[in-house]
């Protein structure tokens, strides 16, 4: 038996346009639908052939070292007890992050930094070994704890501002953030004299942890007075419309 309602979602499934719930529903359908299974397998096979036919591009110099280096370095981070005494940065890092919380953040954080503006990547790499990113976050700026607006919430968020080459980078880490409705996002705002400035979108993972790294490139001299997190109906909002869930004054 197949249900066309679901079969019609195959394109959106393959191209990553379903939200988490829809995707889970579709995967259930997929297990039971030989038509969709066959079509998906054919799409993947054909795509692989197209990929093999694609014009070859030379990978950048040093990519292998960087990629494998990062993979194996993260491996070490993931181990419970890295004993390499020569790696002083990491060793020190171990001492300052007792809870392991920041260690867990290293993975998404490294990804976030890669995603941020290219200039930042080189800047960060130049300043810090990737293994001590969390250390940089904690020690390099003043950490501010945000408080939940509602007493009943046990959400946690910490942030720090970093001055780098005339621009400010906001780093924010969140814990215990609840799932939002479809389309909604957590949005970080910086405020000066009640004027809001968008400072990144926060997407918590399944365990409610999230992070954002946001560079404010034309606001280097602003002394912000408040940081706030709202729930917005759309990531495109230029001004906050949703409720403030957490905030802190500088």
């Amino acid at each position: 038996m197949n249900d066309n309602r679901y079969c019609d979602r195959l394109i959106d499934y393959y191209n990553g346009h379903l939200d988490q719930k829809e995707e889970a529903e579709f995967e259930k359908h997929l297990e039971e639908c030989p038509d969709c299974q066959a079509e998906l397998a054919e799409w993947k096979a054909l795509n692989a052939e197209l990929a093999r036919d694609t014009e070859q591009v030379e990978p950048p110099r040093g990519m292998e070292d960087r990629v494998l280096g990062n993979i194996f370095a993260e491996d070490t981070e993931r181990e419970e007890n890295p004993m390499d005494e020569r790696d002083t940065a990491r060793h020190k890092n171990e001492k300052t992050t007792k809870t392991g919380f920041y260690k867990k953040l290293l993975i998404p954080l490294a990804a976030a930094l890669l995603l941020s503006v290219i200039g930042n990547i080189y800047l960060w790499n130049a300043q810090q070994q990737t293994g001590s990113l969390s250390e940089a976050l904690l020690e390099d700026g003043e950490t501010i704890n945000l408080a939940p607006t509602s007493e009943s919430e046990d959400m946690n968020a910490k942030m720090a501002m970093h001055e780098t080459n005339g621009s400010q980078t906001l780093v924010l880490q969140a814990q215990n953030f609840t799932d939002l409705n479809e389309g909604e996002v957590y949005q970080v705002w910086l405020l000066k004299d009640e004027q809001p400035y968008r400072a990144g979108t926060l997407v918590p993972n399944d365990s409610g942890e999230g992070y954002t790294v946001f560079t404010l490139d034309d606001a280097e001299d602003v002394n912000w007075d408040t940081v706030a997190i709202t729930v917005e109906p759309s990531p495109q909002n230029q001004a906050p419309q949703g409720d403030i869930v957490m905030s802190a004054d500088f």
Binding site: P59, R66, V67, I71, A111, L114, L115
Partner: peptide
């Protein structure tokens, strides 16, 4: 190029 390197790293990771 930047994103492609990131993608390849993500794959092997």
């Amino acid at each position: 190029h930047e994103r492609s390197e990131e993608v390849v790293q993500d794959v092997f990771m």
